[in-house]
Amino acid sequence: MMDFATILQVFDSTVRLATPLLLACLAGLYSERAGIYDIGLEGKMLAAAFFSGAIAAVTGSVWLGLLAGIAASTALSGIHGLAAITFRGNQLISGVAVNFLAAGLTVVIAQDWFKQGGRTPSLIGGARFTPVKLPLADTLREVPILGPIYYELISGHTILVYLAFAMVPLTWWLLFRTRFGLRLRAVGENPAAVDTAGVSVVGNRYAAVAICGLLCGIAGAYLATALQAGFVKDMTAGRGYIALAALIFAKWRPWYALSSTLLFGFLQAIALRYQNIDLGGVVVPVQFMDALPYILTVVILAGFVGKAIPPRAGGEPYVKER
């Protein structure tokens, strides 16, 4: 059986692994709530991971890296917006294109700039995000139970982790308590009504897609400059798709997104720590743990456990009647 310290370590790693999923999941939430399907989360994260890693490596500043990552991700969002909103193309196909564009370009550019087989140099010092020690973490460490929880689990993460968790209430407030949020959700449910009210459908959708780019940019930068020290080829490793799965699992709601990404982060943490899990004679293979987020999503989508209903106008380009 696992002891207390091990459990803490697993939860600690859950938080680290859930952070990029949470950021990408919230990114997708903004976009899909506004009626723009986005299966290009993976590509945007990957592009952000590369450019943040590359710029941080060259300048030595992780903050410039973060900005570069956000810029790259938002640029891809712009392409997606152009295809999906302005030219009313197929949003799914556009997302696929964005994913491949990022997968190809990151390696081509990385090879051209650094000549290290599609990776950036390892980031050191100020080129990485360092853990933040919360106040009193050392003092309270000796307190039984709660002390280690505070020291190990809550304190000692990078600033982006706290930012990601803060985004959950912020997103909830923005979407459900502000006029902007109401309009954003409305263009995803009934764009014609929004248009009739004199509010720009195109403007709101572009705003949502831009926020999506911003959050994917932070998620990608987190991968390359906080979780790991530098970019390696295909480092997102399907996280964009897991985030997409988490979004469906969360039924397009911010607080549910927190719990679903924590769950999927936990599965990753377990799979990372244990190869095969022995549950009293029945051995669960690691491959099953890897596939579990996807299996759970299919089950949820099938409506066997609750029902996930997407925004009504999702995936449909808006055409004003003439």
């Binding site: 193309g89 196909i93 556009s94 294109a97 491949f100």
Partner: peptide, 28 residues
């Protein structure tokens, strides 16, 4: 050459983008 294989992935992405998603950009 020093052009990595992934260039093909870029071309593939651009083909998907232009013939698929941005079809209307040419068509209109």
């Amino acid at each position: 050459t020093s052009i990595p294989r992934e260039l093909i992935v870029v071309i593939q992405a651009l083909v998907i983008l232009f013939t698929g998603a941005l079809d209307n950009m040419v068509r209109m």
